[in-house]
Nucleic acid binder design. Structure first.
Length: 475
RNA sequence: GAGAGAGUAGCACAAUGGCAGUGCACUAGACUGUGGAUCUAGCUGUUGCGGGUUCAAGUCCCGUCUCUCUCCCCA
């Protein structure tokens, strides 16, 4: 009876070649994040269920991986009459990195006033896997806590943009919306507050299922046709005017927003015009305008694009929300937003915060599809080969001298024909061979061979090491 | 959660209901101190699992597990 050897659905084993790419990508992200002044944080894989529940919305709660009680606590729980699912578990695997951060902030007294942390770790969701969708995957989060300044919102967007630029993935946009604005739009179309969530879910699909699709969706969810139409009219951004017939910025009176692109300024004006009757909309509109103005002086500026249909599933967002999109992938490559209430759920006093998260595996997928990883190697530089007349001790002595000299050296453990040893070197993509036989051992020398060019020479050990170093550098 | 497809050697794939095969990979050999090419020989199987139909099942039927894709949702 064979037990299955494949990893559980939605998880993967990372072989050395995978890890070369993953480590490389992680290094770039880490470097960019640190250049923005973010410092690293890691938190446990699992949290108290009470920490996780109720933060993400119903959908999120459903997708939590729960850990059963251990030992007799489980047995006792099962004895209880009317025992339910939630009585059987008290811990869960983290669903994202934002809620654990909020917990740490609430739990730690002496953090800097503005805590800027990055965190690159796996998260788990009990989802059905698909392309670019896993049950275990990495997120690369940056967050800034302690300020409501929209400068912080722009900084997190900028850091994310810089990562994509650095990697050569430039065809992205950052869709931008505002949670409160969204609420106002729904309210303005005459949809009841109870149906707000439902409406959000439907309009979020606009770019996937189209106008008619959303129309059907809204109807199916019991939203009056007239209200649905009003909502669609409100959120639908008119097609981009071409440069020729686009009115000059100054023509939209009162909207002078320095550095903001005419297209974004026009969309802001359109939304403002539609919401004059809703006083609550003034705040979010001002914030979006200010955010775009600040972003004008940042790497994020050219990538931001207002999209009133952007909803985002997570429950904790309160202000601006973002999502990275690219034609290279049908879902999002990352997302984020402001959550000024989340930390307060753990601690009496509310602390404002904003963050952004890059989906590591999706970015990796895009880079692989586009061949954006150059040649990456993590294997040894040199295969140390040996004739049977040289002792293993002598071989290890010489090999360790090469290692001391800074080379990555694998020693062939057996002594078949030397050609076999060379063939093995090729098969593991090692270009350089060191060869030790009785002849070399007696003279304190070492033969070295470049398997790519066929060049071979016998040198004193120290010189051999130096020459191997040269060869290793030039690849 | 809904729908569709696929599971045969380490990998990629064949096999009208009639002996389970091909290629790559792997092992050995063709100058016992020199690899890549070529040639020769060899190894590799509970055809995902369980049942059923049949003289006979990889093939047809039922169940089950796993994987892939689409939808939903997301990163």
């Amino acid at each position: 009876m064979n037990i299955t050897t494949s990893p559980p659905s939605g998880t993967r084993d990372f072989l050395p070649a995978d890890l070369a790419r993953r480590r490389h990508l992680e290094g770039v992200i880490r470097r960019v994040y640190e250049s923005f002044g973010f410092v690293p944080l890691e938190t446990p894989a699992f949290e108290h269920l009470s920490t996780l529940l109720g933060k993400y919305g119903d959908e999120g709660d459903q997708l939590l991986f729960r850990l059963l009680h251990r030992r007799d606590k489980l047995a006792r729980a099962l004895q209880e009459p009317g025992v339910g699912e939630k009585d059987l578990a008290d811990l869960g695997l983290r669903y994202d990195l934002t809620v654990p951060l909020a917990r740490v902030i609430a739990n730690t007294k002496d953090l800097p006033r503005f805590f800027k942390r990055y965190q690159i770790q796996p998260v788990w969701r009990a989802d059905r896997p698909g392309k670019g969708r896993y049950r275990e995957f990495w997120q690369c989060d940056i967050d800034i806590t302690g300020t409501t300044s929209l400068l912080a919102d722009v900084e997190v967007c900028s850091a994310v943009v810089r990562v994509f630029e650095e990697l050569g993935v430039r065809d992205i946009t950052i869709a931008l919306n505002h949670r409160q604005l969204l609420r106002c739009l729904i309210q303005a179309s005459g949809i009841s507050p109870e149906q707000e969530e439902t409406a959000l879910v439907a309009i979020d699909k606009l770019d996937k299922i189209g106008l008619d699709g959303v129309r059907r969706e809204l109807a199916a969810r019991g939203i009056a046709a007239a209200a649905g139409e009003r909502l669609l009219a409100l959120i639908s951004r008119p097609p981009e005017a071409s440069a020729a017939d686009r009115p000059a910025v100054s023509s939209s009176a009162g909207s002078a927003a320095p550095g903001v692109s005419p297209a974004e300024a026009a969309e802001l004006d359109r939304l403002a015009g539609l919401l004059t009757a809703v006083p609550e909309a003034a705040g979010p509109l001002t914030q979006l305008r200010e955010l775009l103005e600040i972003a004008a002086g940042s790497p994020a500026g050219p990538y931001l694009r207002l999209d009133a249909t952007l909803a985002r599933g997570l429950g904790y967002y309160t202000g601006p929300i973002f999502e990275i999109r690219s034609p290279a992938f049908s879902g999002s490559l990352g997302g984020g937003g402001r959550y000024d209430g989340l930390i307060g759920m753990f601690k009496g006093t509310a602390i404002p915060a904003v963050g952004f998260s890059i989906g590591f595996e999706r970015l990796l997928l895009v880079m692989e599809e586009r061949g954006l990883f150059g040649r990456l190697s993590c294997g040894p530089d040199v295969l140390f080969c040996r004739f049977p007349d040289a002792s293993p001790a002598d071989a290890l002595r010489a090999a360790n001298a090469l290692r001391q000299a800074g080379l990555k050296v694998e020693v062939y453990p057996e002594t078949p024909k030397i050609g076999k040893q060379f063939a093995y070197a090729e098969s593991i993509q090692v270009k350089l061979a060191a060869i030790l036989g009785a002849k070399e051992a007696q003279e304190g020398r070492l033969s070295i061979k470049h398997l790519g060019t066929g060049e071979q020479l016998t040198l004193p050990l120290r010189e051999a090491a130096a020459r191997l170093q040269e060869w290793a550098k030039t690849g």
